[in-house]
Design a binder for these strands. Sequence first.
DNA 1: TATTTTGATGTAACCGATATCATTTATAGG
DNA 2: CCTATAAATGATATCGGTTACATCAAAATA
Lengths: 337, 337
Amino acid sequence: MSNIRDVAQLAGVSVATVSRALQQPDLVSLKTRTKVLAAVKQVGYKPNLMAVRFRSGKTHHLVVLVPTVANVFFARVISGMQQAAHDKGYSLLLCNTLADEAMEQSYARMVHTSQADGLIQLRAHNPFAQLEMKTGSVLPMVNACEVLDRIACPTVLLDNRAAACAMTEHLLQLGHRRIAMIKGPARSPLTRDRVAGYRDALDAAGVAFDESLLYPGDFTLQSGHQAATELLALANPPTALFCENDEMAIGAIQAVKQHGLKLPQDISVAGFDDISFAAFADPPLTTIAQPAEEFGSTAVNLLIDLLEGRLTKAPKVILPFELIQRASTGPAPAVSG
Amino acid sequence: MSNIRDVAQLAGVSVATVSRALQQPDLVSLKTRTKVLAAVKQVGYKPNLMAVRFRSGKTHHLVVLVPTVANVFFARVISGMQQAAHDKGYSLLLCNTLADEAMEQSYARMVHTSQADGLIQLRAHNPFAQLEMKTGSVLPMVNACEVLDRIACPTVLLDNRAAACAMTEHLLQLGHRRIAMIKGPARSPLTRDRVAGYRDALDAAGVAFDESLLYPGDFTLQSGHQAATELLALANPPTALFCENDEMAIGAIQAVKQHGLKLPQDISVAGFDDISFAAFADPPLTTIAQPAEEFGSTAVNLLIDLLEGRLTKAPKVILPFELIQRASTGPAPAVSG
DNA sequence: TATTTTGATGTAACCGATATCATTTATAGG
DNA sequence: CCTATAAATGATATCGGTTACATCAAAATA
């Protein structure tokens, strides 16, 4: 591999001149510049970016902590991130945490050990908590999708409360009164907000909240299936299932059918995210569309702004949602519990 | 940020001793070692890995070129890669190429500019072709899933021909004679192999090959839907649809239902990959299971072996498949065209 | 013509670790 | 007690760029 000294020697100039000819061409005379460029071409010189970045102290790498890339929604978010990062000359170091705290820690440490400039976290957990406790410093981080409320860091989020409220209102308008919610883990702020939105809508409609209609899932198809199965076994089962993501909704739909019920005549099922499979469910899934790619690109842009000092304080960007009405939700059955 | 000199000064030793105390503790006396470790702790020293890697010339980064992370199968492959890479102290630089040649090139160049040690390519395209042409050097690459046949590089693949043959045989055994194949782009070697397997089975069963039953898709739900719609409009439509991935199969199932046909009584649909949604399709999808995560981990391990000089020649690893029989395929309808 | 200003280039320090080689100190053997 | 050998430590070059500063020539000004 040729280096800058080879080029300098061949061109008969100093290494400084070569560097300048490539970085600030106006500082170099046309004559020398052409000589240098010819030499660069001849030896096939490519600057060693490891050296450049070591010198500059900036890696241009961003760590992304994703709970699971196998989740379709997150996959879209990552896609948006990658595009935005590439546009600004950054690359993504991907970590599929799989809820493994140690794995998350080990990637977070990359920001400490100068392997990455900053980090984007997609779940409600501060991976720097331990590190910052020890060092007292605050590391560059952006939070997206799932939101940490205790920390003042730039954030991209959906108005989950309003979105859950909108979907619940939709179901209430269809005449449903027993609306179950297949939610995420109890401790998640995202789930907490969505449950709050669900209750807002119930309260506004004067429908009593029933704790037994809340079922905690884990965002997988299987958990949606299991949740629906158990909810349908209740003495007074729900006529609508509002799921916190489309995977669980699709799982729930299968359980509903296995239970011998027809959708949407006997029961309605709604999802959240509008992943590509939602429109291909049978029946097609009513859901909340989120701008997944935009989550990713916004998060990346915020982080880069933060890193490059263009951020004075931590903004909270709220992205819009849209209720997508399809055939999985319909009027509540005439004889309702 | 503290550096090795700070530690050395505080411990009252030379930087070389600090480095040794951390890298080869046996070369340092117990007394000095404890002194050094105390100093390390006191100043909160973390070696600057950018410096380490610049010095060593190894980045411990691997570029991964993925056609689309939004594809569930690829998401699983990436998950497997990330796990394996992490276990060996490497990180993944993810590039979602989205069929953008320029994007692919720009990431491939990272190997040239010392930003990454090697590359894993998931589609049948050599991103180094141009670079290697110019420089004459061969860059470390591993190919997985989609296979490049012209190049001698370590490869992880499925016996796609045998798998497609197995699925076709399954359909033939069910009595199907008009079996359509919703395949991938014509130029893809993967598709070529699978079509070959499909023909192997037809030939063995003495069923004539009908070109009009081959339909090129692009692995999306939409394209499966469209393909099925067009195939069902044929004068002599197929009784079975063999799709090259599960997304297209799920899209096809929707089209089949919209056409008023029942599955599997009127028509059978089979997929490929066994993504999580396959078991939740209605009816559950018969498909070929591939060890997606293992594809990822194997590819990463091969690349690391290659980088660390443990590979003499380019191995081809063939991973096993399994035909998963579910309810989307059944006996051919009695009155067949 | 003498002097200042501008432009172009070279010299060398620097980023932070590692590793070679030299040097000092400790241990063993005679 | 002295030397030979081993063990521990230090001084410093090095990786490949960038950049502050020095130098020098050419152009502009007095």
